[in-house]
Design a protein around this nucleic acid. Structure first.
Length: 491
RNA sequence: GGGCGCAUAGCUCAGUCGGUAGAGCAACUGGCUUUUAACCAGUAGGUCGUAGGUUCGAUCCCUACUGCGCUCACCA
């Protein structure tokens, strides 16, 4: 036992066992969802069909209000909350056992649906069953869990103790399932590709490294599923998607968690224009499905996810806000010095730093920023009309990158050269060796393909109005708790 | 990694210009059959994050450490 257990609760459990009652019985009760009862009960003026009905509910009991011979206590399950009324004159033999119950206990109640004098919907208990004793007391009833660290560390408490938390995660689940249905309806196949990668690629990020004992070699936790999914396009699956957990060894921020979920999809015969349409239609559909509206409020600003989204060219945005052409090297370098940007040692990286410093704040959106300089797009096809540009876009909302897409580069020779260039750069975020296996896949022929990535966590942030990524992750990354906080080993 | 801030009862917080601490809720005892942050009376509960230092004396002042929050940096 840990310091969370309260002696009086433990003592009650022992008293129960002595009386032949198991505080942790093997089986639960067949209970109806509370919401199914409250929704049928109607109003005080027009009581619905549930009134008078005998029902069984199960859930966690909140703090009881004790009147001596009458006790009221709220009970809640995953669907809702209802008041339970315990009466001495109804409960008979069970009545003395009421003292065994504490706030936070999991109980099952069978009783009649009714109302109090004040009209509150109440289930008047006839049978009470303790389903599991709660040794640790719930958080303070009015303030709830306010310590942010504790909220994340003890999400299992936060989910029911903090208003709105469960709602966010239910919505997250609905967002993901809506995306699956949307893509399946378009003939997409959901696939799973490796998380352990011998070479990291498909994005620019520092990887986590791990070791496989039997093979005695290092693996990287994937930073993106991209290169495996495109192998499947070579394999002829033609339309694939994966909702992949990616791992990037980077700092934490309100927008970054070291492990995060990314939707990536690839479609043969498509290009980045089709990906734009797919992205905006998908977001519009998901918003309507989970929120009933395309309007969202995020970080104090209102947005409309109704398709089509605005489109703006990277190069035009650059000229407008950076004040020079993206390929005017002397001017861009001058601008970078004015902005006091550190020189990354590579012109195109510097140029993109200037872009981020001057343009991203203007990408309120939802907006597609299109036609990136090809030099910063190692996996995207060159625009046939403008050889300096790639067929690529990023989707922004509120200055935050939500998505990234391009017409996939399928020329193996070109791809090999771009990989080789990355390796030469010695950039810690670029792979250390050319992914020959991927180049070989392209040598068999990959059809013209459009690919799209959407950050699921960030999309959930937008659709649920949460400011930080940690509020849409059930268990956000945190430093392991200090030894003193860890429960001592069982004795 | 840098800066700023926080750490006191199970929870939420107050407090001590340096003399080892209080409230509300939760708990416990008693009362109450219509409350909904129930109420009334009483009881109990704290190595004041950890380790040093200054001091007659530290929860308070100083230093370091640990954890967390905000922020900057990092982050396609």
């Amino acid at each position: 036992m840990t310091e969370l257990t309260q002696a009086d609760r433990l003592a009650k459990a022992r008293a129960m066992r002595e009386a032949g009652v198991d505080p942790f019985p093997a089986r639960g009760v067949a209970a109806q969802p509370i919401a199914s009862i409250t929704s049928r009960a109607g109003s005080v003026e027009a009581p619905g069909p549930a009134i008078g009905e005998r029902v069984t509910v199960a859930g966690r009991m909140a703090v009881p209000r004790d009147f001596g011979k009458l006790i009221f206590a709220p009970l809640f399950d995953r669907t809702g909350r209802v008041q339970i009324g315990f009466q001495r004159d109804v409960l008979g033999d069970w009545w003395p056992r009421r003292k065994w119950l504490d706030a936070g206990d999991l109980i099952g109640i069978t009783g009649e649906v009714g109302r109090t004098h004040k009209g509150e919907l109440t289930i008047w208990a006839r049978e009470v069953q303790l389903l599991a004793k709660s040794y640790a007391p719930p958080p303070e009833k009015w303030h709830g869990l306010v310590d942010i660290e504790q909220r994340y560390r003890r999400r299992y408490v936060d989910l029911w103790a903090t208003d709105g938390v469960m709602e966010v995660f239910k919505k997250r689940s609905k967002i993901v399932s809506t995306i699956r249905r949307f893509l399946e309806a378009q003939g997409y196949l959901e696939v799973e590709t490796p998380t352990l990668h011998p070479i990291f690629g498909g994005a620019a990020a520092r990887p986590f490294v791990t070791h496989h004992n039997a093979l005695d070699c290092d693996f990287y936790l994937r930073i993106a599923p991209e290169l495996y999914l495109k192998r499947l396009i070579v394999g002829g699956l033609e339309r694939v998607f994966e909702i992949a957990r990616n791992f990037r060894n980077e700092g934490l921020s309100p927008r970054h968690n070291p492990e995060f979920s990314m939707l990536e999809l690839y479609e043969a015969q498509a290009d980045y224009r089709r990906m734009m349409e797919l992205a905006e239609t998908m977001l519009e559909t998901v918003a309507l499905e989970v929120n009933g509206t395309t309007k969202v409020s995020f970080r104090g600003r209102d947005y409309d996810l109704k398709a089509p989204f605005q489109r703006v060219r990277y190069t035009e945005l650059f000229r407008e806000h950076a004040g020079c052409a993206f390929d005017d090297q002397p001017a861009v370098r001058r601008r970078a010095r004015e902005l006091e940007l550190a020189d990354p040692g590579n012109y195109w990286k510097l140029m993109n730093d200037v872009f981020e410093a001057t343009c991203e704040e203007h990408l309120i959106g939802p907006v597609f920023c299109t036609d990136y300089p090809v030099a910063i797009c190692p996996l995207a096809k060159t625009n046939p009309e403008q050889r300096q540009l790639a067929e690529r876009f990023e989707l922004f909302l509120g200055g935050m990158e939500l998505g990234n897409a391009f017409s996939e580069l399928n020329d193996p020779e070109d791809q090999e050269q771009r990989f080789a260039e990355q390796v030469r750069s010695k950039d810690p975020e670029a792979p250390g060796e050319v992914d020959i296996d991927y180049v070989q896949a392209l040598e068999y022929g990959m059809p013209p393909t459009g690919g799209l990535g959407i950050g699921i966590d960030r999309l959930v942030m937008v659709l649920t109005g949460q400011d930080t990524i940690r509020d849409v992750l059930l268990f956000p990354a945190m430093r392991p708790s200090a030894a003193s906080d860890v429960a001592p080993a069982a004795t």
